[in-house]
Amino acid sequence: MSTPQFELANPPNDAISAIQFAPTSLRLLVASWDKHVYLYDTSNAGGQLLNSFEHRGPVLDVCFGENDEEAYTAGLDWDVRRINLTTGAQTVLSSHGAGVKSVLYDRQHNILVSGSWDSTLHIHHLSKPSDTLVKISLPNKPFSLSLTSTRLVVAMASRALHIYTLADLASDSAASSIEPWQRRESSLKFMTRAVACMPNDEGYASSSIEGRVAVEWFDPSTTSQSRKYAFKCHRQPSPEGIDVVYPVNALTFHPVHGTFASGGGDGFVALWDGVAKRRIRQYQRYTTSVSALSFSGDGKFLAVAVSPGFEDGREGVGEGTVGVFIRELGEGEAKGKGMK
């Protein structure tokens, strides 16, 4: 039986910052530090590079828009852009005052959220192109954003974390009147690396640079809050007895089973059952740091982007070390087994 995984041909030339599957197809967007966004069709082994879109600076995030033909990108050129994937036409939606770390599209409210190192969120009301921009100030630089159907979770520097209600963001109210639904401090002691929300809208997982993942629930009641926990992962004991701790760079929830995958600087990708508190499986180690993960819309594929991370102290990127792997998940492979 062959490996249920293949590597995309024509990978980016530099480190990968983000990947995302299209909601309804097997198209995959890859954002890279080589200033390009790549669009692949992954329905065939090896994949096919459909197009690439050059930016002025390294691209830090990318997401699909309303359909498979539309994408939004954010990058070091401070801009948030819309890209027509068919024509390649790019439109700058807004400009931040610093690099834009993340961008998210919410189909239900038809809004686009971007978070920048200038410590602001930009809320774009895509349905009303005229006066679309709402700027929300954050206490710290946002490092990672994640959406559920009703919430926006913003993980920031200094372990701060805000949870917004999407309805508030989508409303016409002024930016000043938008307050986070909850303000939290990360339950992890170290800098938050990634945050991902449960597809069932009940909670989220966050990871830190210190090989740890926390799972928490939105519900502020004590019973729900007492369920939160954190666990160590992506660490390796060295021969000297020292635990080498890798950052957990990527988190993503399975759209169907509600389990989640974590990707670490150690090159491992692990599947976890956040409810049963179990590791479902861990895949064979990749050659280098895992920088991004994405499940396909139907949950049958997992895209794994590997690229040497900055954490390795390496300045450059060697040939062939950047890659995107598409792993086909077996029936129930990502399904939790439940409490035993």
Binding site: K141, F190, M191, I209, E210, V244, Y246, P247, G265, E315
Partner: peptide
């Protein structure tokens, strides 16, 4: 107390920010 070594130890500046400074 336990010995451990963080691969990325800067608790204030994210890896991306550092890369961006390159």
């Amino acid at each position: 107390d336990k010995n451990m070594r963080l691969i990325y130890s800067d608790n204030e500046v994210s890896p991306e920010e550092k890369m961006a400074q390159m």
